[in-house]
Computed example of a mutant assay.
Amino acid sequence: MTPNTILDEILAAKREEVARLQLFRRAIRAQAEAEEAPPPRGFESALRRPGEVAVIAEFKRRSPSAGEINPYAQVAGVASVYAAGGASAISILTDGPWFGGSLDDLRSARGAVGVPLLRKDFTLDSVQLYEARAAGADAVLLIVRALADTRLRELLELSGELGLAALVEAHDEEEIDRALEAGARIVGVNARDLATFEVDLEQSLRLIARLPAEVVAVAESGIRSSEDAAAAGRAGADAVLVGGWLMAGDPAAGVEALAGHPRRPRRAAMQAAGVEGVDAGDAS
């Protein structure tokens, strides 16, 4: 099975999952539950740490690329360790078949920690936003590659109406342009190409250095050490999102190693990288 087939299967399975939710009128119940949920916590503001890189620590038991990582991990305990170690936010994988997660993991994390929570899943439909809000999410993931432009804008708009921040994930320049044109305020540059599952951290950091000043820039995938987090800071990343490396090792020591690295303003990062034609308004 090729990585591209894995991605196609994940999206096909997610469409079937959404169809079942619609069939059983889950959207109506989830919308009512979302309206009763406690106020969301500030995900975007948590990532804006002046002069330093914030950490989004991720909870996941397995992944298609790595296989089993920590299959018996309990989310409340791990999330508490992440928060105590200095994580600014926590990402919770809620996909079951491929990542071993669930909305119950999100609910457990909400009860265990006070930092903002990201529901990380393959979001394709509004019902998933209502579910996320009802289960205690403060932010959701929207993957540019998985969404048409119209749907991306619709989900961004609804996220805002629900008080959810949206981490809009891109991999290349074209996807970054699509994210920005849709109105993304938080852009994650994924070093992993979802078509091949290959990781190129250096290329993703070059793309981060080009993001506009007003956008929160998140480096995703490929961060496996304190040195990688420091490199992300030099590229102007506001935050790093790290899961597999933390879950496979010591979560407490791992978060401490990632947190607090200096963040270079992105205009300076572009100049240091030798990018020509940089205007003062292009990057922070």
Rank of each mutant, 00 (worst) to 15 (best):
V113Q: 02
A195H: 14
A112F: 07
A134E: 07
L106G: 00
R153D: 10
R192F: 13
A112Q: 04
A179F: 11
D125K: 11
V115K: 02
L156E: 02
V140P: 03
A184S: 10
A139S: 13
G114V: 10
E181A: 15
V189G: 02
P116L: 07
L162Y: 05
R153H: 12
L141G: 02
V113I: 10
A134I: 13
G183H: 07
A137P: 08
G188Q: 02
D138M: 11
V127R: 04
A182R: 05
A166M: 09
G160C: 09
T123D: 02
L141A: 07
L156T: 03
G136L: 10
E173Y: 10
A195W: 14
L117T: 02
D125P: 10
E131H: 11
G111N: 09
N190Y: 08
L106W: 02
A148D: 15
R107H: 02
E174L: 14
L164H: 04
N190S: 11
G111D: 07
I143L: 08
G183E: 05
S126V: 15
R192P: 10
L129V: 12
L124S: 06
G183M: 10
D193Q: 12
G188M: 06
L129F: 12
S108C: 06
K120A: 09
A146F: 13
V113H: 03
N190V: 11
K120L: 10
L164S: 01
L158E: 13
G136E: 06
G163A: 05
G163I: 07
A135R: 04
V115S: 05
R110L: 06
G160P: 09
F122M: 04
G160D: 08
V187K: 00
L103H: 01
G183V: 11
L194P: 03
L118Y: 05
T123K: 04
Y130G: 11
L118T: 05
Y130F: 15
N190A: 13
L142Q: 05
I143W: 00
E198D: 15
R110N: 03
I176K: 03
S126W: 12
T123A: 04
E175I: 09
L103Q: 00
A109H: 00
Q128T: 08
V127S: 08
Q128R: 07
E173V: 14
